[in-house]
Structure formats: C-alpha cells, structure tokens
C-alpha cells in the first residue's frame, strides 16, 4: 500500500503520531502561504492554528484517491480568506475597484509609510510588506499564490474558483498600486 494512503488511514483513526508526521511534512509550506498573505508572524501563526484544526477535523472527508497537497493548500487559502472577515475596511474594495478608490488606497499606504517617517531606513522589501498588508484580501491572496506557489494565472483561478479575468486584473491592480507607490519614493529606479 502507498505510504501516504496508509498514513492517511492512520490519521483518520485519530492516530496522533500519524497526524504529527503528516503535518510536519507540509506545515512549513502552508505557513509560508499564511505569512506572505498577512506579512505578520503572529497573525500567520493564528491562522495556522486554525489550519491544523481544520485538517484534523476534516481528514475523515478526504478522498484518498485524490492528491493531498492541493487539498491542504485549499484549506490554508480558505482559512486566510475567512480570517478577520469582520475587518470590513477592505471588503468593499472588491472586484470593480474604481479609480477613486484606488487612489484613496494609495493614499492610505502612503500615509502609513509617512507616519512611520522611516522611508529611507526601510528596505524595499520591508515597504512592500507593509503595502501588502494594506491591500484588499482578493489582491493579497492572488499575489500569494503567484509568488509562494509560482502558479500561473489559470491555476490561481482554479484554486480560488474565480474567473481568469478577475485573477488577472487583481494581480495587475495590486502590483500596479505597489509600483506607483514605490515609484513616488524613487524606490524602483535602477
């Protein structure tokens, strides 16, 4: 019998050792998804606790004939998206982002950076991290799958169950927003 299938059956039997072994193989990878999405270690760990629980609780429904990793990924992605749903700030900024909203989001990011007053001391990547945090969930999750998973647009659309055009425009807008913001600080010049 396939070693993964036998491990899975032991998990379904509430075998703690088997669960530890299964999760230890995948947790680092799942954590990276959560971290890139939140850009915050504490929040990423909070989400991971939910991810562990969800895997434990729903392993019984997992079909052994299907690949495990996409199933785990989907749990991590959905947990990220559902986390802090009550944070209504960005929920309205969904698919059809108006130019005015885009500009106001850009202002939010800018003011966040100015308040810190540390633009020069920050590296590009620290600033990008802060910017990602301020993006709407739809943008962040698309960027996460693109850069952590190295997924193509079509694969991202499949995982998120969104139309290809939506994914394309979310990635475009997210990156455009960051590019324009960083450009204003002359941070993207060669």
């Amino acid at each position: 019998m396939d070693i993964w299938i036998s491990l899975m059956r032991r998990c379904k039997n509430n075998d703690k050792e088997a669960f530890n072994s299964l999760l230890s193989h995948h947790e680092a990878y799942l954590y990276k998804i959560c971290y890139f999405y939140t850009q915050n270690q504490e929040t990423a760990l909070d989400i991971m606790q939910e991810v562990f629980l969800k895997i434990y609780r729903s392993i019984h429904t997992f079909d052994e004939n299907r690949p495990l990793l996409p199933w785990l990924k989907r749990i991590a992605v959905n947990t990220c998206l559902n986390f802090q749903r009550d944070n209504k700030k960005y929920n309205q900024l969904s698919l059809d982002l108006e130019l005015s909203e885009e500009l106001s989001l850009k202002d939010t990011i800018k003011s966040q950076m100015d308040v810190e007053g540390e633009v020069i001391r920050h590296s590009n990547q620290e600033l990008i991290g802060k910017c990602i945090e301020a993006l709407p969930p739809n943008y962040r999750i698309a960027l996460t799958l693109k850069y952590i998973e190295d997924m193509r647009y079509e694969e991202i659309a499949a995982v998120l169950e969104q139309p290809l055009g939506t994914v394309k425009s979310n990635i475009f807008r997210a990156r455009n927003l960051l590019k324009n913001t960083l450009k204003d600080y002359n941070l993207l010049e060669v």
Partner: peptide, 13 residues
C-alpha cells in the same frame, strides 16, 4: 520597475 518589484516579491517569498 516591474522587474525590480517582481524580484523583490520573489525574494520576499
């Protein structure tokens, strides 16, 4: 500029 941004993203990941 986009290439630099892309490089930063990859490096962060």
């Amino acid at each position: 500029r986009l290439k630099i941004l892309d490089w930063d993203f990859n490096s962060m990941a």
